[in-house]
Amino acid sequence: MLRFLTRRTLGAVLTLFLISAVTYFMFFAIPQDPALLACGKNCTPDALKVIHTNLGLDQPVAVQFWHYMVGIFAGRDLPVGECAAPCFGISFDSGQPVWDTIIDRLPLTLSLSAGGLVVFLVVGLGLGMLAAWKKGTKVDKTVSSASLVLSSLQIYFLGPVVLGIFVYSTGWLDKPKYVPLTESFSGWFMGLLIPWLVMSVIFTAQYTRMSRSSMIEQLQEEHVKAARAKGMTSRFVFFRYAWRGSLIPIVTIIGMDMGALFGGAMVTELTFGLAGVGRLARDSVVLKDLPLTMGVLIFSAAFILLFNVIVDAAYAFIDPRVRLS
């Protein structure tokens, strides 16, 4: 098991390195001179040349990439300023180290994703199981058709509609904002309530359908029948025998969704006017802030890979056949 996880982690690190390399070289394949971006509006040819040297752009790309990679672990002394250990460069736009900027925005994005995840997992799995338990009844039909309708909605549609109703028209709730959890729980909670609910409405539907079909499939398994033949109660069989197996496809989807959730944070954050990592990514692209774009990209990739490892560990936790083989 430990070996398995170690191997997966090593694989993830290797993948991350490859992603970094590919994106790094891609940026240098862009015909535009990065120095020009850093130079700003009042650029003179002399200033450009200085920047060129300062950024190390006169060196071969491979050497530059090497320095970049070393910088991540050891820090770098950049001409624009000191850049401490996890150094992803310094933003052209703000002059701040990229790492600090991302860390600064991270709590919001994490709160948004994790909160959404909790809501839609609890509600989604719960409704799905309810529908499976009551298969063929009105409850099942209502839940199933509602989830079909809701899953076809999109955040950029539902978001403004909810904002329009609950914030702008009735004023029942405040406009979403981020208050750090360390400052005030209620502020944090109330500030993110609308985005959570909107996100979970959309994701819940998918999990409801998934959990329902997976549950129904498991309930037809021979071992579920065998458990009933032992005299175990329907509830026991449902929660012990069927539920556990039904989690496997769901965990797979969670793994994929966490990536989407993190990447999709951009849309959510823009919809609700929140400034998280997603917003940062979009801004960095608009401002052509190369180091920042690189940083956010590598960071997101690392996050998705981390989740892949977590999903693999979860498989092993759920299914002993994975654990022991």
């Binding site: 398994e221 021979e222 071992h223 579920v224 029948k225 065998a226 458990a227 009933r228 033949a229 032992k230 005299g231 175990m232 109660t233 025998y241 556990r244 197996g245 759920i318 299914d319 002993p320 056949r321």
Partner: peptide, 23 residues
């Protein structure tokens, strides 16, 4: 029936690989 199943009457299934829970 639950009090009878597995107690007074029990069943052996064809394929133990599928009839025993893998978990």
């Amino acid at each position: 029936l639950q009090t009878l199943r597995g107690n007074k009457m029990a069943m052996i299934f064809q394929d133990a690989l599928t009839a025993l829970s893998p978990y």
